[in-house]
Design a protein around this nucleic acid. Structure first.
Lengths: 205, 205
DNA sequence: TTTCATATGTGAATAATTTAGCAACTTTAG
DNA sequence: CTAAAGTTGCTAAATTATTCACATATGAAA
């Protein structure tokens, strides 16, 4: 890894690269040029080369990139050890849909367990245990750093509690704006905001 | 609206502003300064003022901004007419969770209907009719421009079909990379990519 | 009415990001 | 073995985005 810090914009493209590379690999392709990859995902080849260079010297001049190597490298950086223990907080419709989503493994890790404030939601969904939120500290997996937030109320209070329990990365599906300290990362996965942005774009062609 | 074209970065902040403003309004606040709003959502006040200026002259010098006016203005731009007819394509776990999500109205419009390739999914969920995908052209609402994609297979083919039927904005929940023509907008709402980005950030502090 | 404190909106400066251009290296063809 | 064709990775230029700095307008107070 290069000493330079990776630009935010670059960081946001890494998952896209990994996704595209896996797709290409599944099509039986095992080698690619920045040019081809660029036209596949609509990113300038030179941007791709620069983005890759932050991770290391991944390609060979005059040859291109070996897809298998790229995938391994990116998975190392983006998937951690694949042992990431993720928790889901909020076992409503969305939380349950995510628990039933079966593509967690070999991507970033696994959903270890879930929590809900409503005791009637306690139980097991798709082999994932759902605990009362009041027992968060007791049941949170050791080393757990990432939480997916799908609660419909008290998002801020819930996040505060998660941070107290060692969570440093949060994916929030709520439409609430949440405040976190500088050393905690939060990413919004927000349909409403996405649609709004889309409407704005569609209206401003 | 100013003649200058709105920068992409600015466009991505608009939904955040609207969200924060509504929150503030719900707290009984009816007037705000760029300074306060900035510290509330962690955006530089001057960035906020510049972003706002693309829409028009929204504030008063020496006074600040009237929250009600701001909300109305942003809703006009981001929510269209609130008559946006949205369709959901894919009535699996996630699609159904979205249909049960009850915060569509007065935000961007309403989910008019849904489609699924699996005939066993046909029916009505939370008052939203689910039609067979084969009858897309017949049942797509007049003037419908936006689709939410939650299919688990054949994402690209499905999108191609949507575009043929007049869709110009797509929110994709799939983890597949999809190619669309220049005049169609696609936004990914992708848990996997978000977690990957989060893992990268958390590992690179 | 006048003065003071304050906040916007924007032109200019700075910072971040993307793109162009090219030297250096690799493969392939002859 | 040599030359030609092609591709990376890096430096520098161009573009885009953010921040500074201040003239200008507003409301409140005296």
């Amino acid at each position: 890894m290069n000493k330079r810090k990776v630009p935010k914009a670059t960081m946001q493209r890494y998952p896209l690269y990994l996704k595209a590379l896996k797709k290409l690999q599944s099509l039986g392709i095992d080698r690619i040029m920045s040019n081809q990859l660029g036209s596949f995902i609509d990113v300038e080849p030179t941007t791709i080369r620069r983005d890759f260079s932050f991770i290391g010297t991944l390609g060979k001049q005059g040859y291109g990139y070996d897809i298998e190597t790229l995938i391994e490298t990116f998975e190392g950086h983006l998937g951690g050890t694949y042992n990431e223990k993720i928790i889901i907080v909020g076992a409503g419709n969305l939380g349950r849909a995510l628990m039933n989503y079966n593509r967690w493994n070999n991507v970033v890790g696994e959903v270890a367990c879930a929590f809900d404030i409503d005791e009637s939601k306690i139980g097991v969904i798709n082999d994932i245990p759902v605990y009362p939120l009041s027992q968060l500290s007791k049941n949170i997996p050791v080393g757990c750093r990432i939480a997916i937030l799908t609660v419909s109320h008290d998002a801020q209070e819930t996040v505060d509690k998660l941070i107290e329990n060692g969570i440093v990365g949060i994916i929030s599906f709520t439409h609430d704006h949440i405040r976190v300290p500088k050393d905690v990362f939060i990413k919004y996965v927000d349909v409403i905001s996405s649609i709004q942005e889309l409407v704005f774009q569609v209206n401003n062609i």
